[in-house]
Computed example of a mutant assay.
Amino acid sequence: MRHYPNTLYLFLTLLAGLSACVEPVALPIRQTERRLVVDGLITDEAPPYLIKLTYSGNLTSSLLIPEELAINGAKVVVADDAGKSVLLEQDPLNAAYYWVRDPSFRGQPGRSYTLFVTLPDGSRYQSVPERLAAVAPLDQLTAQYHTQSSILGQPDAYLIGVDTQDPPTPGNFYRWESVSYLPRWTKYDPLHPPISNGLSSFCYCSCWVPYFGPLTDVLSDALLNGNRISNRIVFSSPIYAVGNQYVQVRQFSLSRAAYQYWTLFEQQRTRTGSLFDPQPASIEGNVHAVDDTTKLALGYFGASAVSQQRLTIPGDTINYNRFLVRYGNEFIPPDQDCFQAFGQAQLIPPAGYPPR
């Protein structure tokens, strides 16, 4: 066996020298000027309508907006092109939320709507007028059972499809919002927790938990003008327990500018880190400073007509015993009730859905 003592010595010496030269460096965090962020929508449904105003910054996954980012004390007005306007009411519990509650101010197809915002420091912003276009009626929803790979431990799902007839006039744009109320199992009823008696017997109790689809599912009729949109999949509703699922899909009309905004938003959301991804950038919308139209806010103020459908998916299409054999307790939180384990849980199914 041959040895290379000189080579090994030189290598160890070089490694020690490099280690001695490495020191932690605290890089300064780049500070950018905070900007107004607008998120709101006027529809042809009955009020209330919500306009959310914040400053740009780091948001957590919590539903609560940090106090330093909420815009408290703004004056917010929405006006239409017929001269009617409404002053929004600030939410007493969440400073970033401003509401249109006047029942007489309801969006109408064909009208244009403009948002006016005066910030607490006196700076003024307004949106580009947004035309509220009519929307095609949404037909009955469909649900297809989709089997996921058991290796990845993902639940199976119902793929929710929509049907609608695009009008013969070109230039129609669509967006879909979806939510399903999923049955979930927990180890005990939150209203009747188990008695600590040394026994390990628990009941598997159900509650229903909302599960929301993406907000960025959009479509242009550029390639299908005047044709039928058939079984377009807009939502994947996971199956965590055997029981009825309650699904709602809302179909929105969009202006061309709103369609372009949501398309860009989706591109940013689905970036995978490849060389072909678009460069990340702040997504500027249709709201600008009154004194300087080049100073743009983030987010978008929209106006849309809405058509919605609801669907009840019966749980008896799934074999209970096979489901338990396949998943066991995988989707059941340990030693928690529904309120502890799931946000926005409710103990009874939601009302207003068609019978199964």
Rank of each mutant, 00 (worst) to 15 (best):
D80P: 04
I65N: 06
E89C: 01
A82L: 08
E89Y: 01
L88K: 07
I71K: 05
D80N: 15
V78S: 11
E89S: 14
V77H: 01
E68P: 07
L69S: 05
G83S: 08
L64R: 11
Q90F: 01
S62A: 04
L64H: 05
V77L: 02
D91G: 05
V78E: 12
V78T: 12
P92Q: 09
E67R: 15
S85R: 12
I65E: 10
N72R: 14
V86G: 02
A82S: 15
S62D: 11
S62Q: 09
I71H: 06
L69K: 11
S61W: 04
G83V: 12
S62C: 01
V78Y: 01
L64F: 03
L69Y: 05
D81C: 05
P66I: 12
S61Y: 06
N72P: 07
G83N: 09
L64Q: 07
I71W: 00
D81Q: 13
N72K: 15
L88T: 10
A74F: 00
A74N: 08
L88E: 05
D81N: 15
L63V: 03
P92I: 04
P66S: 10
P66M: 02
L88S: 10
I71F: 00
I65R: 04
E67P: 06
A70Y: 01
L88Y: 09
L87F: 04
V77A: 02
I71N: 06
S62F: 00
I65K: 04
A79S: 15
L63H: 11
S62R: 01
I71G: 06
E67C: 02
L64P: 00
E67V: 05
P66R: 08
L93V: 12
L69E: 05
V76T: 11
V76Y: 01
L87N: 13
A79T: 14
A74W: 00
L93E: 10
K84Y: 14
S61D: 14
G83Y: 05
S85E: 13
A74T: 07
L64Y: 03
L93W: 07
L87V: 13
D81W: 08
K84H: 14
V76G: 08
L63E: 14
S61H: 03
V77C: 02
L88F: 07
K84I: 13
L64S: 09
Q90D: 05
G83T: 10
S62V: 02
L63W: 09
E89W: 00
A70N: 11
V86R: 03
S61E: 13
E89N: 10
A74E: 02
V77S: 03
S62H: 02
L88Q: 05
E67T: 12
L88P: 09
I65L: 02
A79L: 06
D80I: 09
G83M: 08
A70G: 11
L69G: 06
I71L: 02
L88N: 07
E68R: 12
K75G: 07
L88G: 11
P92A: 02
V86F: 00
A70M: 03
L69R: 08
S61N: 13
E89L: 02
L93R: 14
A70V: 07
V78G: 08
K84S: 14
A70Q: 08
N72S: 15
A82W: 08
G73E: 00
V77K: 10
V78K: 10
I71Y: 01
E67K: 06
V77Q: 07
L93N: 14
A82Y: 13
S85V: 04
K75M: 07
